[in-house]
Design a protein around this nucleic acid. Structure first.
Lengths: 345, 345
DNA sequence: AAAATTTACGCAATCGATTGCAATTTCAAA
DNA sequence: TTTGAAATTGCAATCGATTGCGTAAATTTT
């Protein structure tokens, strides 16, 4: 590769017999520079194929017009959508995105965050990994004066900007729907309780049962069932119980719900007639399984937009006394085949 | 927000009564510094929560350690996987990724590329959008001395590094499989022919027919059927033909194959007994439809790894006379239910 | 113990752009 | 013709890390 010496503002200055200061000002369209010289400078810059060195510029200015994003996995539908949403909104404003994935590993997450701090990003957007619940690294972001925005999976104890789903309400509605469809023994596949989203979904589940005067049965609550495999495993246990459930709310994900469907199918248990199934996240496949899966849509792309706009809105807001904003997006229950049993009283 | 002044190597130097040079050398693990002082410096750096300012470092060293990625959509399984793969491989080397999406729009793609050039990225990785076939902006990348790597959807006429799938071979194998499974009238749902990947898949289809002495029937080839909706539309036409096909190769995507399944289902045509269906890309849903879809896996995450490693390998390769490398990854045919008909001769 | 090497560290320039402050020029008002 | 204010431009420091060159200190060799 040919390494052509790149032209700098000094080259332009030298050619025109002026100083770099003026060139810099001209190229930043400052009004502190004579219109005619400005034009000349811009023309010359163009002739010399000048490209501003953003590294130097950012170093001097102390910001980077860059937003760092840390998610557990880029290639997971929900996160990919949120990132797409963030990109949409930030691109227009001339911001760039640096993307990192933590792989659900707390240590890697810390590394990612530190990398981003090093990079002098203006803002870090994060959805924390399931592993670990120590948030020193996030406090560190704040201490470095970098705006921190958490979304979806948030560390509640940290006072930062947050964009979340109303998980409890969504969960409440899902379970209510199951009850009103006539299901009576409703099991819950729950996720790691150190993530608040899963805690909230459990709360919604419990609240719905209570409101409908349905007793909570501990053996119907299965811990840590948040992958397809773990969901299947949990389902197998549930369905071989002396008194098996007649509905399963896979509150962790549609993947888990998929595991439920497979086990039910293996055991010749009919969905939705004998078993109601509800998932979470409205993954693209959830509408094409048979039966299709009742689930909850989180408006993930919109969530990404919201995160980005929240950043722009808060930027320059110097009021340090104000409580950090928390935006809650109301998810939507999508009723499909897997719960399509007529209510019987 | 309480903004803590960032600690620099000067702070460390001052605290220890030495110069920044030594600190820098120690932190870069140079052997020009005494082992004991080195340890002390590293310990102190840690205590002061020192983070190297990468902007300054890169400015001095003359590169950005950043790779720009442009894809049509971030939230499309294949691309999300490739990006994840690139991230995996580049993260370890301390490189960052800047991600942009062109939204399949040629103009936005040009904008993205220019932004990345301005950002001083060391390398631009791109999969071109379906819209437009003018590649001046890519030539521009090369002219700026930035490494350009194309993947999957490539502009063939540009001599750059490329990582592609052997689309023709994969397509050939898929069609051969259909033929050997006993299907005789095989239709093709093809994608926009300005993208070489779709052209190659068509070539593979034609070659397979030829090798098995099956005549090519023009009315069985449907143009531009690369979404679920377009796939369904094409299928409806095909299946109402006087002599309908007994198999459909949705060479564009599994989404398109999904459209085929839906129409077949509507028309009470049994898959795979009466109609064989094969998709492309091994989307996650393809194994859970009923019947599951025979498709082609592109090893997308691995493709991302390959792209990244190709960059690192070529970096510093000063031999300008060498032809740019093209790495072809062999996709794998995944046989599932939608083509599970026993061969009859 | 003196001479010859090594080793360790400091000095100062450099990467390129930005910006506060000072100096100069311009132009109009007194 | 002076004076004063405004418009331009220059000077030099700064952002933080890196590195070639030089020298003092430590170590080895004779």
């Amino acid at each position: 590769m040919k390494k052509v010496k790149r032209t700098t503002i000094y080259d332009i200055a030298a050619k025109l017999g002026i100083t770099a200061s003026s060139v810099s000002r001209a190229l930043n369209n400052s009004n502190q520079v004579n219109e005619k010289t400005k034009e000349l400078i811009i023309k010359t810059a163009d002739e010399l194929n000048y490209k501003r060195n953003i590294l130097a510029s950012n170093l001097r200015k102390g910001h980077s017009k860059t937003i760092g994003v840390v998610v557990p996995r880029i290639n997971q539908n929900f996160f990919a959508n949120v990132i797409a949403g963030i990109e949409e909104a930030t691109y227009q404003k001339g911001y760039n995105l640096i993307i990192c994935q933590s792989g659900e590993l707390h240590d890697k997450e810390i590394q990612c965050v530190n990398t981003l701090i090093n990079q002098d990003v203006d803002c870090i957007v994060i959805s924390v990994s399931a592993d670990g619940n120590d948030y020193q690294h996030l406090q560190n972001v704040i201490d470095h004066g970098i705006q921190l925005i958490q979304f979806d999976r948030v560390a509640e104890e940290l006072e930062t900007l947050k964009v979340i789903n109303d998980n409890e309400q969504a969960s409440y509605e899902a379970v209510s729907h199951l009850i009103e469809s006539g299901y009576k023994r409703i099991a819950l596949l729950e996720g790691p309780q150190n993530l608040s989203i899963f805690k909230q979904r459990k709360v919604g589940y419990l609240r719905a049962l209570k409101d409908y005067n349905i007793p909570v049965i501990d053996e119907l609550i299965v811990e840590n069932a948040w992958t397809k495999e773990l969901g299947a495993e949990g389902t197998r246990k549930l369905l071989t119980l002396p008194q098996p459930p007649d509905a399963i709310f896979a509150s962790t994900s549609d993947f888990s719900a998929l595991g439920v469907l497979e086990v039910a199918n293996d055991m010749k248990i009919k969905v939705p007639a004998e078993l109601g199934v509800c998932g979470y996240a409205n993954e693209s496949f959830s509408e094409i399984t048979s039966p299709s899966i009742t689930t909850i849509d989180q408006f993930s792309v919109y969530m990404g937009n919201t995160v980005a706009n929240l950043y722009f809105q808060e930027k320059g807001n110097t009021d340090t006394t104000a409580k950090p904003k928390i935006i809650s997006i109301k998810p939507e229950l999508i009723i499909r085949g897997s719960t399509a049993r007529n209510a019987k009283v």
